[in-house]
Simulated assay, not measured.
Amino acid sequence: MISAPRLPLSDGSTIPQLGVGTYKVPAEVTTDLVAGALAAGYRHIDTAALYGNEAEVGEGLRASGLERDEVFVTTKVWNDDQGFDETLRAFDTSAAKLGLDRVDLYLIHWPIPSADRYVDTWRALQRLQEEGRATSIGVSNFSVPHLERLREETGVLPAVNQVELHPRFPQDALVDWHAAHEIVTESWAPLARGGLLGEPLLARIAEKHGKTPAQVVVRWHLDRGLVVFPKSVSLDRIRENGDVFDFVLDADDHEAIATLDTGERTGRNPDLD
Rank of each mutant, 00 (worst) to 15 (best):
V34F: 11
T93Q: 13
E86A: 15
A180T: 04
D80Y: 09
W78M: 14
D11Y: 07
I257T: 05
F84M: 10
D273W: 10
R239H: 07
V73G: 00
A95K: 06
F72K: 00
V20C: 06
P167K: 12
S3D: 11
Y51D: 03
N79I: 02
L174A: 10
S234M: 06
V156K: 00
D101T: 15
P230F: 06
P145L: 09
P113Q: 08
G83E: 06
R151N: 10
N161K: 06
S232K: 12
R168M: 13
D32L: 03
N141R: 07
Y23M: 08
P111F: 02
L98M: 13
E255R: 15
R219Y: 10
D246F: 04
D250G: 14
E59S: 08
E59H: 08
L33Y: 03
W220Y: 08
L128M: 13
E70P: 00
I15L: 14
G52L: 12
T93H: 12
A40C: 11
A206H: 06
R43C: 00
A214M: 13
S140V: 06
R123G: 09
G58E: 05
I45M: 09
V216F: 03
Y23D: 04
F91T: 01
L107W: 12
A27V: 01
R43H: 05
N269M: 11
T22G: 03
E153T: 10
Q129D: 08
F245P: 12
A49W: 05
G242W: 14
Y51T: 03
P213L: 05
H221W: 09
V77C: 04
R149W: 09
D104E: 14
V163H: 02
V233E: 14
D11A: 02
H209R: 15
A258R: 15
A27M: 04
V71Y: 00
G12V: 03
L222V: 11
R62M: 00
L128F: 10
H178A: 04
R219Q: 13
L157A: 15
E240C: 05
E264A: 13
T262H: 14
G21Y: 15
Q215L: 15
F245L: 15
V216A: 01
F247R: 10
V227I: 12
K97M: 11
S232G: 13
L260G: 05
L196S: 01
L202K: 00
I183G: 00
L157E: 11
H209Y: 15
